[in-house]
């Protein structure tokens, strides 16, 4: 079934982009969940919407608009969180909803919502353009490479930020890097699952892997594998049954999470 589907160029592009972006999201998700920043992905998705709308309005590539908006928004969130002394996730809510409001305003100026914007909101992996494949894949690979190179520092910072500082790790720079990486992963997955579901692409595989109660490295590896499995199966099913790929991929991720959740409860009932 998969081989038949892969004869088509659009499926090859979809699988490649889906796998690379899915793995990058799932790896980052483990760090974000453990650092209690899981919803920052959701916030950045809203910010990206403003960038997409601005891109369409000003005739630049929406992808680029989303990237610029999301990186600036992520840095503002980080700054407000660290220096603004706002409670909890208020910084995410303030910045993301402001950007979302801006996006809706821009879209209305541009003549209302159109197909372009909807494809960014809900994903259109099967219709992804070659330049978007390249951009998404490069961005996702940058995230994966960063996590590999800085794995130990990120792990230490996630385990105990204070002790990481004492060991000489530049925690504030890594915090900035983490929010920028989150912005990049959201934008890179925008065409795969859409901005509405990008956060789920970050949270679900990582949450499933965390249910398996393994060590840190294995949790990361399993998170990546679960995401790759969900993307591959989701694409095959959506190709065969003409289902929406983004929704199918996320629903498979949800089923995997439910399975691991119950397996975990059966193995350790307390």
């Amino acid at each position: 079934m998969i081989f038949e589907a892969l004869q088509y160029g659009f499926m090859q592009k979809a699988l490649l982009t889906g796998l690379v972006t899915g793995i990058s999201c799932s790896l980052l998700g483990v760090f974000l969940i453990l650092r209690k920043h899981a919803l920052i992905g959701d916030g950045i998705s809203h910010i990206s919407f403003g960038g997409v709308a601005a891109g369409i309005l000003f005739g630049i590539m929406p992808f680029v608009g989303a990237l610029v908006f999301s990186i600036i928004g992520a840095l503002v969130i980080n700054n407000l969180r660290e220096k603004g002394k706002l409670h909890g996730d208020a910084s995410i809510g303030i910045v993301s909803h402001s950007a979302l409001g801006l996006g809706i305003f821009i879209a209305s100026i541009a003549g209302g919502f159109n197909v372009d914007i909807l494809s960014y909101l809900f994903g259109s992996i099967l219709a992804i353009a070659s330049e978007e494949v390249i951009l998404s894949s490069i961005l996702a690979l940058v995230v994966i490479l960063f996590i590999v190179v800085f794995y130990h520092d990120l792990f230490y910072m996630t385990f105990d930020e204070e002790s990481a500082k004492v060991s000489g790790i530049s925690v504030s720079k890594l915090n900035i890097a983490m929010v920028i990486l989150t912005a990049i992963t959201v934008v890179s997955s925008m065409r795969v699952v859409g901005l509405m579901l990008a956060s789920a692409f970050i949270i679900l595989p990582a949450s499933s892997a965390l249910q398996l109660k393994m060590g840190f490295k294995k949790t990361l590896i399993y998170s990546g594998l679960i995401s790759a499995f969900s993307v591959t199966l989701g694409l095959i099913l959506s190709y065969n049954y003409n289902w929406a790929p983004s929704g199918t991929i996320i629903l498979i991720n949800t089923l995997v999470f439910i399975s691991t959740y119950f397996i975990s409860r059966i193995n350790s009932p307390e």
């Binding site: 130990h152 520092d153 060991s167």
Partner: peptide, 23 residues
């Protein structure tokens, strides 16, 4: 208590100081 780290992985962190990335 549900942090996903083995004892060995935790002790590993004590060796990071002074190493350059990738550690």
């Amino acid at each position: 208590n549900n942090f996903p780290a083995t004892v060995e992985e935790v002790v590993e962190m004590g060796l990071l100081s002074g190493k350059k990335n990738p550690k």
